[in-house]
Write a protein that binds this DNA or RNA. Structure first.
Lengths: 243, 243
DNA sequence: ATTTTTGCTTGATTCAGATCAATAACTGCC
DNA sequence: GGCAGTTATTGATCTGAATCAAGCAAAAAT
């Protein structure tokens, strides 16, 4: 076994506790690794899959980050998700056998390729894996509901504050600083995701800085006052999400 | 076997093609029925489950309709879903072992009670059932993405038009008229779901009537001009959803 | 049958965030 | 290092939907 292949194993993956192997025995992880031999590099701005692509694989993010988005009939797009290491992409493609959304790397990223038919077969034999798949689906649904709340009822400042706290706590889970991080997405993507315009997002960044809630320079963000920011977000953690 | 029990069988259920049994062989459906012995009646306004209830069952709607909603830290609620016969409720509770949302009957309704641990075990033995569960999860995610588009970028009239078309096509799938139906939810719920106020929704109903797109009297709705309504919705079917 | 409640509609006014517009800063890239 | 093309900030203005405020209809309660 070469070093390159070793690098793909779950055992030495920094996000194994957040990803599919979570809760599996070593023996089951070995089986999972056997169907996850391929790794894929996706450069910043490139697509992992596009809307309409046939569904064959799920993708587990190893490193980097992605946005996923849907495209309406009129060509308009809506960013639906910012995905970080350990998260799965492509789950919404199962029922239609085609990807209804697309995923694009926000920075140079790498993913594990999971052929779904094989994963399905393995899950049939490994209850813990099946449970983990249900769990990931379910968690995803739960989070979407929280975003619906954000878009349905919340003011612009609340939305941005909630996003910053959410991203912060997700980075923290992955072993990075919760208070200082680099946003991998442009303002336009943040705005689109939050149902706002880039101008409004920019103004809010300025306002949050004036209010000493954050310090921001471009995509570099430092949270100075988590309590204050949480008050703006109207909650005590992300949008009740992961954290 | 009594008549009451017979009534619970999938075989004579009008929505079996949309529900869990879809795609299963008769033998597999029999097995499914064995774990689905209980049926539950939920009266209008009553809860099927509440936020925070421990997760034990999934519920398949036999008749009637439900709204599900999440409650924010400040007590504010967001309606996340209107569920019709054949649809499953409770999927978002799996990962946390607790219901993160609640489900309330919009009219007198009945559901099949599916103990999840037994369903899980059965799915392990019946690949077609496992696939159907994945499919339902996946479909749900897909639809949430379409709602995100609606809430993120669309104007009030577009949102309501899309909802009307979506509900119409879902009724049609269940064998009811696509052009004439009774909304089971009050205006406030429609407004909340669409991220609007009840006043705005009411004004839009009036406007759509003036424009001869619909005829509405309270919750009784008739679609007069599907093409016109689709133009307002900016799409050719529901929010790209089920239809 | 009459009061109370709940749900729906309509009008007047306000405001948060969009839109339009102009710079400014940053990122490659010759 | 300088130029072209993004990406971000800031300002002025506008507008769609919220909010505030009645009034009305239908259903539930007395």
């Amino acid at each position: 076994m070469t070093d390159t292949q070793r690098a793909v194993s779950c055992g030495n993956c920094s996000v194994r506790r957040l990803c599919l192997p979570a809760g599996l025995s070593q023996g089951d992880i070995d089986k999972l690794e056997q169907i996850t031999r391929k790794k894929k590099i996706v450069k910043s701005g490139e697509s992992l899959f596009r809307t309409g692509d046939p569904f064959a694989n799920l993708y587990a993010i190893r490193s980097g980050s992605f946005k996923s988005a849907v495209i309406a009939a009129d060509g308009d797009t809506q960013v639906t998700h910012f995905a970080l290491p350990g998260e799965l992409l492509g789950l919404d493609a199962y029922s239609g056998r085609v990807h209804p959304s697309y995923a694009e790397a926000l920075e140079d990223s790498s993913v594990c390729v999971l052929p779904f038919s094989q994963l399905e077969t393995l899950a049939q034999q490994v209850p813990a894996l099946q449970q983990q798949i249900y769990s990931i689906f379910s968690e995803e649904l739960k989070q979407e509901n929280d975003i619906l709340m954000l878009l349905g009822k919340r003011s612009a400042d609340t939305r941005l504050a909630a996003l910053l706290i959410n991203i912060s706590s997700r980075y923290a889970r992955r072993g990075y600083s919760a208070s200082r991080f680099v946003l991998s997405m442009p303002r336009t993507d943040i705005a689109n995701y939050l149902g706002l315009t880039a101008e409004t997002v920019s103004r809010l960044f300025s306002r949050f800085q004036k209010e000493k809630l954050i310090r921001a320079s471009g995509r570099d963000v430092e949270i100075l006052d988590l309590i204050g920011l949480s008050e703006v977000a109207g909650t005590h953690c992300g949008y009740e999400g992961e954290g």
